[in-house]
Design a protein around this nucleic acid. Structure first.
Lengths: 286, 286
DNA sequence: AACTCCCGTTTCACTATGTGGGACGGATGC
DNA sequence: GCATCCGTCCCACATAGTGAAACGGGAGTT
């Protein structure tokens, strides 16, 4: 016990969701995240130091987690993320979760624009259409769930590429093939890279008759709680209804929907606080 | 203090960690595992019911986990495994962990047999060599880390196939091609299936000049804490040193090493405990 | 509208539970 | 030999977690 420390932040009542946090949980999650950042594993001592937990407390947690198969130890005694933790999300494909969480926003977008709404994610070197809501118009762009398309000529694909970490993106581009479906399709790598830069600066992607002559498409990125792009949402319609002057308005709606989905995935736009110290219990009378 | 006072056994020799379990952890992990088995998500009420937790308690945990990004909620309020949980093990590839944990057992096996020791895992439709310790003999079987081979003609591959869940195995076999590297290689699916049955009954796999004429290989399966096969370990040498009469002895050593690695991965051979009820705190009178 | 039922959320007094300083014993290194 | 450092274990203490009950609000029924 090192005296009273009120020195820390005295952020008043910033708590947005009601229930009080559980101390044990805060501590255990901080261990998870510490270990996630340490591929080589960590010893009890350094875990205790880096999380600010008491050595006994950390030990109790680690021992419990090890017995449960969530952590493993190597011969030096270092703790590593274990099999049970790695496989946790494996059953319910995460894509199904994204699909389900996106539904409300997709439906709202569908109502607002009256056009076909698509949800897509990266799958291998292609875009996989996770979900589609078709426009009620007779003249519409028809897609279907489960369909795949090349990255280079769709707004969904270009969006996914634009926000991918550079290293991942470059490796992906090296292995993917560029389709030329219309005269507008971008097939030059250098040209595509320039386009990705424009997209990122602008905040959304436009497919101007690049996949189908007469078709126009506007897409925005969806991020998860770790800040990585996990999916992309788009509105697609004939150029007759999606003229140049309508695109900014549609883009605003698509971006709004994408932001809403990101939020429900736990994405907090104020990309902040990497390492927050764990508050340990303090005796009341210091 | 009800319950845990003596923490059970006083066996100093067994490396079982003796720290008393943490109630909150037990409860939270039971929520994780419940949600992992429910791809469609679960409501607060049914989570509380199925884990035996009090509704308030479950709520507090769920709210905290949601705020931390470990869980997400769909519009009906159902809780789902969230992005942070899915990506937890993603940084340190799990294969690196297996490698590290296997080292001691591999080195012991290497000392005991004096032959080349291989560690392999399934990667796509092939065997990926995760680690290799080469025999000190001048006449030896040389392999290297990162190498890939077809499943059908290696002891490692046959082992991985033999213990795979049948559905996974069948799908895999349908998409993989069979190499015929020597006259002994098994290329008939029906013949391979029969061999897999023999392997599973026997407990280990033998490659008798199926990948290289004059080479012999003995492999055993490695399981993780969920009971799934995650890797395979083998000893490889020239038939001149690995004669038929030496194979049972080598197989015993390989199986021992495999079992040791499985144990360090959290595998408990007494395949039990699917659903244990969570012990909740009892009201005072009991 | 008014009533009912069923959830999720919040509250609050109580005490069982997690806590952490300290002790023990085994490695490793001067 | 002595000095460190580490993981493990112990135990009295008081705080943090607990859960019954109350609250609030949406959906269905009359």
């Amino acid at each position: 016990m090192a005296g009273v420390q009120h020195a820390g932040l005295k952020t008043g009542k910033l708590r947005r969701s009601g229930a009080a946090p559980v101390g044990v949980l805060t501590k255990v999650l901080s261990i998870f995240e510490l270990l996630d950042r340490a591929p080589g594993g960590l010893q009890l001592r350094s875990i205790a130091d880096q999380t600010g937990l008491n050595k006994s407390t950390a030990y109790r947690f680690l021992a419990h987690l090890e017995r449960a198969g969530y952590l493993v130890r190597d011969l030096t005694g270092a703790y590593l993320i274990g099999p049970r933790l790695v496989h946790l999300g494996a059953n319910s494909t995460y894509q199904a979760t994204i699909c389900r969480l996106s539904r409300p926003a997709m439906e709202e977008l569908w109502r607002e624009t009256g056009e076909t709404v698509n949800l897509g994610a990266l799958d291998g070197t292609e875009v996989l259409y996770l979900d589609v809501l078709e426009s009620p118009h007779h003249f519409r762009l028809s897609s279907q769930k489960g369909m795949r398309r090349a990255m280079n000529c769709t707004a969904l694909g270009k969006t996914l590429l634009a926000w991918l970490p550079p290293a991942t993106r470059d490796e992906l581009l090296a292995h993917s093939k560029f389709e030329k479906r219309t005269p507008h399709s971008i097939t030059q790598p250098s040209e595509l890279l320039a386009e990705l830069g424009r997209i990122q600066r602008r905040g959304y992607a436009v497919d101007n008759e690049e996949v189908e002559t007469g078709a126009c498409c506007v897409a925005a990125p969806i991020f998860d709680s770790s800040g990585l792009i996990t999916a992309s949402i788009s509105v697609a319609g004939p150029v007759t209804r999606m003229g140049h002057n309508r695109i900014p308005a549609v883009a605003a709606l698509v971006s709004g929907a994408a932001a809403a989905i990101s939020r429900s995935l736990g994405y907090a736009e104020s990309g902040s606080g990497r390492s927050r110290p764990v508050r340990t219990r303090k005796t009341r009378r210091g």
